[in-house]
């Protein structure tokens, strides 16, 4: 049994090296993680931009500078042109020696808020006393942490796609038919292909996390979270590799699968906790929830251990349900 598993893994390794998969698989996600590392802080520092006519009193410009970024323009028409561009940038011009706020008109409810806030900032009046307390984790950028979780889900998916593509290649080259009459069982195929996918995923998960958040995360918990999630990439590999006869069908299935796999858990970040109940049936929701606790902390619902266990058993349950169907599809013992 072990010899057959090792042989199949060796075969997958050879395919991966021959097709440069390993090279691309390592480079593409890591480059993306590097890109995200530089990109996410700028998103975190997002603030309002104001287009301002340079003849505005410098004291007023300074006051506006306290609540956002300033872009100075010599002419009022240039300010208007800037305001009319695609992004949301309000403007401030001088008309009849008086300041005038310029907006595009599509700001909705925000227009009134912006108007009053700009007026208040320009007045320079101090109305209330303010104090600021930074929590223990005050320097944290949550975007980086959420970015790392998204990368974990993507990298796990990429690993399982190698498994799916190998199955499809075997189908297309009729090698699967040969495997069907060999002593190789479905279980052995699952172990061999699954292990290969998991090792690849793990390498990418660890390296992308290192790139994005460095050593600020508890890698012990990260590895535990990954161990809880191992049945999910196997399920993904089987769903795509088992159902698709060729690459075109695989991509078609993947396009729909991706929507459920990644988009739904991401949505839970912005919707209220009480609505999360609609996602409880998804193992990937629990996987997201598990890693959310590794990177951010418990934001409600079951703790790390319990959500990890739910991830493991819910995805294992789906593997068990799909197993007989896929065995018939792959025509293995």
């Amino acid at each position: 049994m072990f010899k057959r598993i090792i042989n199949l893994m060796r075969q997958d390794w050879t395919n991966a090296v021959r097709d440069n998969i390993l090279l691309y698989m390592m480079i593409a996600p890591l480059l993306l993680a590097l890109g995200a590392r530089f990109f996410l802080p700028s998103l975190n520092q997002n603030q309002y931009t104001f287009a301002v006519q340079s003849s505005l009193n410098s004291e007023l410009v300074h006051r506006l500078d306290q609540i956002g970024k300033i872009e100075l323009f010599d002419d009022a028409n240039d300010v208007k042109e800037r305001v009319l561009r695609s992004d949301d940038v309000p403007g401030l011009i001088i008309e009849n020696n008086q300041p005038q706020i310029i907006m595009e008109g599509n700001e909705g409810d925000e227009a009134q808020v912006l108007q009053s806030v700009i007026e208040q900032a320009l007045s320079g009046d101090v109305v209330a006393q303010y104090s600021l307390t930074q929590g223990e984790s005050g320097a944290r950028s949550l975007l980086k942490e959420y970015g790392a979780i998204i990368f974990i889900l993507i990298n796990t998916l990429l690993g399982s796609l190698v498994m799916a593509f190998n199955i499809i290649e075997d189908k297309e080259s009729k090698a699967m038919r040969a495997l069907g009459v060999s002593p190789l069982s479905m279980l052995e195929l699952t172990i061999a292909r699954g292990l290969f996918a998991l090792v690849l995923s793990l390498i990418m998960v660890v390296s992308s996390t290192m790139i994005l958040v460095g050593t600020q995360v508890n890698f012990g918990l990260l590895l535990m979270g990954f161990a809880f999630s191992i049945a999910l990439p196997i399920l993904t590999g089987y769903v795509i590799g088992g159902l698709a006869d060729n690459q075109l069908k695989a991509i078609a299935i993947l396009k729909f699968y991706f929507l459920i796999y990644l988009t739904l858990p991401i949505i839970t970040v912005v919707i209220p906790q009480k609505s999360h109940i609609f996602f409880y049936w998804l193992p990937n929701y629990w996987m997201w929830h598990t890693f959310e606790q590794v990177f951010i902390g418990n934001l409600g619902g079951p703790g790390f251990l319990l959500s990890g266990i739910i991830t493991f058993f819910s995805s294992l349950l789906l593997v068990v349900i799909c197993y007989p169907f896929l065995r018939r599809q792959l025509k293995l013992r």
């Binding site: 520092q45 309002y48 609540i67 600021l132």
Partner: peptide, 19 residues
């Protein structure tokens, strides 16, 4: 005599606090 205390647990630019 209004008094406001801000509690922050993540990175937020000072401009947004001023806003």
């Amino acid at each position: 005599n209004p008094v406001f205390a801000f509690l922050i647990n993540s990175q937020i630019p000072m401009e947004n606090i001023n806003l």
